[in-house]
Simulated scan of single mutants.
Amino acid sequence: MAAGSFFTGLGYLGEGFRLIRQPGLRLFVIIPLVINVLLFGLLFVLLADLFAAMIATAMGWLPDWAWLQSLDWLFWILYGVVILLMLAYGFVIIANLIGSPFYGYLSELTEKHLTGQEVSVGGGWGQILKDIPRALWREVQKILYYLPRAVGLLILGFIPVINLMAAALWFLFNCWMMSLQYVDYPADNHRVSFPALRRSLQKNRPAALGFGLPVALAAMVPVLNLVVVPAAVCGATAFWVRDAGRNQQPE
């Protein structure tokens, strides 16, 4: 199998955005998107209420000086920045946990759209419900792969001199994880194990990092990160069909 190039990988997210507009795919984009928007709004409101209580407590500790009491607006600005950053980095994980059964089926439909061939004999809502336990377990596997490596990079960030490289390593790791995260959906549809998927992407690392780079950047942009998830699923499926999944055998 000839490995794809970094620049080939870069183009798959753009293709994913084109694919999610296809009539046959829109329903399985809209449903998890609505769920994610509701979840995003709920989390934001809950965090806002919590932060409002913290601000009220902190302001109660300050002396009763008008200029100090008027600083609550500054706390709210800081809150907005911090919360947006937290949601930008953490939302993709939550969205994938909730939407994983839908995204698996979206990947199936995308592959059928691209190749004209059925991925599996089953389908529809019954198959989505049946696949929920397996889809959730795949998400857990990805989290278990991610956490120890993220902790290791976090520790490197506290070591002088080495921490200068930690930011670049962290970003490269995020690009790699985005590729693993989304190419896993078509791989799972073909019953390719998570370890086998990792080996396949390692052989195709330039294209995998090329695909993961724009996904990682888009995931950092609030609101855009709501739409990038289904687009990344479709783009990853195209990547699987043309590069990563060629000659793969189920395990």
Rank of each mutant, 00 (worst) to 15 (best):
Y145M: 06
D49F: 14
G210Q: 01
Y145L: 10
R246K: 15
L109M: 13
L84T: 11
L209T: 11
V37H: 02
G152K: 00
L25D: 05
L43I: 14
A218W: 02
D243K: 02
F75S: 12
Y79F: 15
R134Q: 13
W125C: 02
W61E: 11
L144M: 12
G245V: 07
Y79C: 03
V119S: 08
E15V: 10
I93H: 13
L47V: 11
R138G: 08
Y103D: 01
A2T: 14
N247P: 00
D131N: 14
A238H: 09
L85F: 14
A2I: 13
Q248D: 01
A236F: 07
K112W: 02
G4K: 00
V81N: 01
W65K: 12
L201T: 03
A52L: 11
H190R: 14
L43S: 07
L25R: 06
A218L: 12
S193F: 01
Y89H: 07
G104L: 12
A219D: 11
Y12A: 05
L46A: 15
P148T: 09
V228D: 05
V81C: 06
M220N: 12
F91R: 00
R246C: 04
R26K: 15
P250I: 06
Y89Q: 08
V34R: 09
P63V: 07
L87R: 11
P206D: 04
Y182D: 03
P222F: 10
V29H: 05
R149E: 00
W73M: 09
P148Y: 12
F102E: 03
A238F: 03
P63G: 08
L25G: 03
R191C: 03
Q117Y: 09
G90T: 07
F211Y: 14
I132R: 02
V215S: 07
Y105N: 01
V121C: 01
D184I: 00
A187S: 14
P101F: 04
Y182W: 10
M165P: 00
L50V: 05
A236G: 13
A236M: 03
F51V: 02
F28G: 00
Y182R: 03
L109E: 10
L172T: 10
P214Q: 13
N36C: 12
A56L: 11
E118D: 15
V119M: 11
V223L: 13
P186E: 07
L153C: 06
F17L: 15
P230T: 06
S100R: 01
Y103E: 00
V37E: 02
V45I: 14
L39Y: 13
Q202G: 03
Y79P: 00
L224H: 10
W76P: 00
E251I: 05
G104Y: 02
